[in-house]
């Protein structure tokens, strides 16, 4: 398990934006994962998707790592941001924009505004 933890840590610390999800960004296999991947895709954020369904050790390991019981899990610059509910709330409130700006992650503000306009 130590190997899995190391692997997870290196992935999170070595990649600006990482989404642990069920399925892939192109073919999500869960509505909650799909929503978060969809937001990031729509906002033009470059991110690495880790399909937990492809690896049981990572599926359990990521939950232990973050002490968070559910998938998806979004990490930005090594920091755990949250799951589907939190990412959704932060997208609509503009907090996600601020996080990306603070962390120096490129994203489309115009696309984020479109999401907010569509959900207003």
């Amino acid at each position: 398990m130590a190997d899995v933890e190391t692997q997870i840590r290196e992935t999170i610390e070595g990649t600006d934006v990482v989404l642990f999800m069920k399925g892939t960004k192109d073919m999500p296999q869960c509505g909650f994962s799909s929503r978060v991947a969809g937001v990031l895709n729509f906002m033009g954020v470059e991110f690495t998707d880790i399909n937990v369904l492809a690896n049981d050790d990572i599926r359990q390991g990521i939950k232990d790592f973050s002490d968070w019981p559910t998938i998806p899990q979004l990490y930005v610059k090594g920091e755990f941001v949250g799951g589907c509910d939190i990412v959704t709330e932060m997208t609509l409130s503009g907090e996600l924009d601020k996080l990306f700006e603070d962390k120096g992650v490129a994203y489309s503000k115009e696309a984020a505004d479109k999401i907010r306009a569509a959900n207003a």
Partner: peptide, 9 residues
């Protein structure tokens, strides 16, 4: 937000 969810969990 994360703390709130953790407290519920």
């Amino acid at each position: 937000r994360v703390e709130r969810h953790r407290a519920v969990h």
